[in-house]
Structure formats: C-alpha cells, structure tokens
C-alpha cells in the first residue's frame, strides 16, 4: 500500500528533515509513527499525500509512483487518502456539516449522497448533535472528531492522522483512538503519527520510530539495522 525506498527530504540547504527512510506498510495495517518533536513525522506523512515532494528516493502509494505522478493527478490520489491534519484545517466559515459535506462536494457527489454520508460519518465519530455547530465553537476533541469525520467521508483506502490526540486529555484521547481502531477494523490502512507513548503502548500495534529524520526502530522487524539507508520495514 505504501512503500518508501531511501527517501530524502530537505527544506533548507544544510538541514535534512528525512535522511534515507525506507519502509513498507501493507494494506489494512495499523502503524504508529513515533519520535520526538522535529523527528520528521509530519514530513513523512506529507510526502505520502503529496503536500511535499521527496528530493531523492522512491515512494509508491496505492501502486502509484509519486515521482512520476502528473500534477493533475494529485487531487485524485488525495481522494483515496483521508488526512487528519495536525492543526485540523477545518474551514472556520463553514458549519460542521458543511465542512464534511465539502469533502464530498469537491469530488462531485450529489446532494443526497452528501447528506447521507456526512450524517453517517458524524454518527461514527459520535458528533451528530453538533452537526450545525461551527469549528471555533467546538472543543479540541470535537474539532478532532470533525477532522476525522471529514477524512473518512470519502471512504479512503488510507487514513493518515497526524497527532490525533495532540492536546486532548487521556479520556478523549482514548475515545479518538477507539474511533481510529474501528476504522482500521473495517479494512482501512491507518497511519498515525504521535509522540504519546502511553497510547502507543496500550494499542499494541506496529510502531515505527523516527529520530532526527531516520528510522531507528520498527516493531515489525526483529533486527533493526543501524543505518537508515537500508530497507527497514517489510511485512
């Protein structure tokens, strides 16, 4: 589903955010990406849905080689990937319903379809009662759920969540993880970036750890090479 081979990414000349990442995530897997702040977790995720382009190395997502992807095809790739952004990226001027329906609007769904699926997905994240609320009037946990609902509404094959429990208390964080787990149970490939080790330990899933732009461990592998430039993960 997602394969990276020796991927490098730098934002500034003398500093690389990712230095030779190689990994493979199979269809239907649930994977945590952990690591300290600045390790490159968000960068790694951005490469997958093409918000950033790798400088070197090969990335394949859903069978597509991203380096060869035409610009015009990027929107269609993104429709298969639901992303829960670290900063939510909800549209403030739109209601909860409209934020979610908008993801359907963008891909040309009918009004009826929009209603049905937005409603359905809001129920899954337990937010039906806030359907007419506005993002700025919601709690952090609620905004997070709206963001998840929007990511889910197109039935993506891959769900990417960047710090979905970022500044939520333990109880709400638990609920959010429960939702993500349920999505995983339905067969979606789920990637979660987090530095919340409590949650990672409790969930007992595959964990890939980044440090300083390198893969330093992968729970799916018995032996972890010291150098990040070799193939590190394969399931």
């Amino acid at each position: 589903m997602i394969r990276m081979v020796d991927v490098y990414k730098r934002y500034q000349k003398d500093y690389s955010a990712l230095k030779g990442i190689s990994l493979h995530v199979a269809k239907g897997e649930f994977v945590f990406i952990t690591g300290p702040s600045g390790a490159g977790k968000t960068t790694l995720l951005k490469l997958i849905y093409c918000e950033e382009q790798a400088d070197r190395g090969e990335i394949r997502v859903n069978g597509l080689n991203l380096a060869r992807l035409r610009r015009g095809s990027i929107p269609y790739l993104r429709r298969n990937i639901g992303v829960v952004f670290q900063d939510f990226k909800l549209i403030r001027s739109k209601s909860v319903f409209d934020n979610i329906a908008f993801a359907l609007r963008v891909i040309g769904a009918s009004k009826k379809e929009m209603k049905r699926r937005a409603w359905d997905v809001l129920r899954r994240v337990g937010l039906q009662h806030k359907i007419n609320g506005y993002p700025l009037r919601l709690s952090g946990g609620e905004q997070q759920r709206v963001a998840i609902a929007r990511a889910l509404v197109n039935d993506p094959v891959i769900l990417i969540a960047d710090e979905p429990t970022g500044n939520l208390d333990a109880v709400v964080a638990e609920e959010i993880m429960e939702i993500l787990n349920e999505i995983h149970m339905r067969g979606t490939t789920v990637l979660v970036a987090t530095h919340d080790m409590n949650i990672v330990e409790r969930m007992n899933k595959r964990v890939i750890r980044l440090e300083n732009g390198r893969c330093v461990s992968d729970s799916a592998l018995s032996d972890v090479p010291a150098s990040g430039s070799e193939v590190v993960g394969r399931v």
Binding site: G72, P75, L77, R78, V83, L90, F102, N154
Partner: peptide, 9 residues
C-alpha cells in the same frame, strides 16, 4: 484545505 482534500484546480 480544498487542495489537500483532493479538489482539482
């Protein structure tokens, strides 16, 4: 946001 959720140009 539109771009990131798959809207075409």
């Amino acid at each position: 946001v539109m771009r990131l959720i798959g809207a075409t140009n």
